[in-house]
């Protein structure tokens, strides 16, 4: 929100991720990278004003040494020098994703895609596969991090 704009500590960015259901993240971060409509982009504090739509992809942010991953699906990103606002239709933190379920969803979506059908069905299956793959990928990031 606007009133938080001037309290951001120097060298930090305020990252806010909101979905229609809730405010998911509101934190001071050092770096953000997000999947823009025309390619992934990274943001450091002091970035110029930038507004873009999101595609399905992985949102990554860093607080000090800690890396965080999220899956985001569609929406908008508004970047100002001190603040990044992500308005996503759907977003999930890596730690909230159940890896096994995500994997099951990938398998199911693959099957559906193979089965074919009407063009609209194929398209739907393709999107859900993309979603499922993304969730799996994001969830596995966390796993790797945990082992490291």
């Amino acid at each position: 929100m606007a009133e938080t704009g001037h309290t951001v500590p120097s060298g930090k960015l305020l990252l806010e991720v909101v979905t229609p259901d809730k405010l998911l993240v509101s934190e001071y971060v050092d770096q953000v990278s997000a999947p823009g409509a025309e390619g992934d982009f990274g943001v450091l504090p002091g970035h110029c004003h930038f507004l873009t739509t999101l595609r399905i992809g992985e949102l990554h942010y860093r607080i000090g040494e800690a890396e965080h991953y999220m899956s985001v699906l569609w929406g908008f990103v508004d970047v100002t020098p001190r603040k990044v606002t992500v308005l996503a239709e759907i977003a999930e933190k890596a730690e909230d994703i159940d890896v096994d379920r995500a994997h099951a969803a990938v398998v199911k979506a693959e099957e559906r895609l193979e089965r074919g059908g009407l063009p609209s069905e194929v398209e739907e299956a393709r999107v859900s596969l993309e979603k499922a793959r993304l969730r799996e990928k994001v969830a596995e990031r966390l796993k790797k991090q945990g082992h490291a």
Partner: peptide, 8 residues
């Protein structure tokens, strides 16, 4: 408008 980058 140039101060703002838009994508697309």
């Amino acid at each position: 408008v140039g101060a703002y980058l838009f994508e697309p």
